[in-house]
Design a protein around this nucleic acid. Structure first.
Lengths: 226, 226
DNA sequence: AGATGTGAATGAGTTCACAGCT
DNA sequence: AGCTGTGAACTCATTCACATCT
């Protein structure tokens, strides 16, 4: 089955995990790996790995396994990491600058092409080689920079307005870190990440660990657990 | 059914979402809300909200709905947000200081009681009222600060060693932001968050949006989508 | 009347087990 | 012989529909 209908978010999430595992293997100069091998090393399920990959075609060699480099390339292609994704960072506070630097360094496919903030003392300065512009000009900046992805790292109160500005500039995707539910444009791929949730889940697990003896927590929770 | 066996990670994740919704309602001075009402406003499923809450007891009033304040309190209790969770931040780089400031401000249950870094120029300085200590003394600092939760925001290469130090200090939970699979202590609640994954998922969705016309993406992915 | 709480029905996701290729 | 790819069995999660309570 090749490039078929829908892909479950669980599968999608795991593709990232597989890719990370493969990067590790390649760094260790492992050339080939079987699904069982992968599963053992990173405690995943062998059958699940095969099922997940099967959504996108046949990558393996029967009787042998998967070529690490080849599978890596294919996953990078599936995740769009072999393309450029010009990215604009909106809000260069603590988290914004952390993400900006994070994306700027390394071989990231997500190149930061612009950044804005509404703090006048920040405007005009540079961060990791990116000049910070005035947030009031967001739509203009986003347009001329050709940004495809917008990273929203502004306070909740400003998130919706900045989101709208990005949409106006023809942005194609937004990753929102403000803890608010955005009114989304249907044509813009919009994902939200609320860092607070990770702490809250930890809090819950701690409370439970208090009362009962800790039970095996081997389920797959997105972004966590591995 | 009260405080029963296992809770699915999906349910757990949604508790955080519900709490955020309730905060919004309380800020708007809404006193009571029905599951249907909640579902409509935040596009969730009414039945699911009820099912999720049912795991922990009966919160609502039949024929009426839920008391916003009461349900908020109960959720905060479930998530352990009505307790103090002394927290230590390990690695005060960009992300570390972002999280430190994030936790330090507001009424967070996660009070930062200590922070360490291995950069000599950082040691001795303060950030959001927290003095930064030498990472070499991590176990000692973690112990005397009484930290319950450790936040790992160090490079992948240093993550395991620092994790071990935290375990040695008797830490109870760790939130790891380094993109590496940790060898975990079974007695320590350990969650990992890899920010890179959020970008990769976005990349994937963009690739798909390119070829086919965008299909409704209404599934629930952890940490995303709302 | 109106909304909760919950068993029953449906659907999604995972594991099993094996046919088929190398 | 060994490992992938995949239908079939199974488990987990969501939705339906209604009995129950205010």
């Amino acid at each position: 089955m090749t490039t078929s209908g829908e892909v479950s978010p669980h599968t999608l999430h795991r593709l990232s995990i597989y890719l990370r595992c493969l990067r590790g293997l390649r760094d260790s100069n492992v050339l080939r790996v079987s699904s069982q091998d992968l599963a053992d090393r990173f405690d995943l399920s062998a059958a699940q790995i095969r099922k997940d990959l099967a959504h996108f075609g046949e990558f393996g060699i029967r009787g042998v396994g998967y070529d690490v480099q080849h599978l890596t390339d294919r996953l990078r292609n599936l995740l769009g990491l072999d393309r450029h994704h010009p990215t604009i960072v909106v809000g260069v506070g603590n988290l914004g600058s952390a993400l900006l630097r994070f994306l700027a360094m390394g071989d990231s496919a997500f190149r930061v092409v612009a950044a804005v903030d509404n703090d006048p003392s920040q405007v005009g300065t540079s961060l990791a080689g990116v000049r910070i512009e005035d947030a009031a000009r967001l739509t203009e900046i986003a347009t001329i920079s050709g940004a495809e992805i917008g990273v929203l790292t502004v306070p909740a109160s400003a998130a919706q307005a900045n989101y709208n500005s990005l949409v106006l500039a023809g942005i194609r995707a937004v990753l929102n870190f403000a803890p608010i539910r955005l009114a989304r444009d249907p044509d813009v791929v919009t994902r939200s990440v609320d860092l607070r949730m990770f702490f809250e889940e930890l809090g819950f697990l701690l409370v439970r660990a208090d009362s009962a003896t800790v039970h095996a927590t081997k389920t797959m929770s997105p972004g966590s657990g591995d």
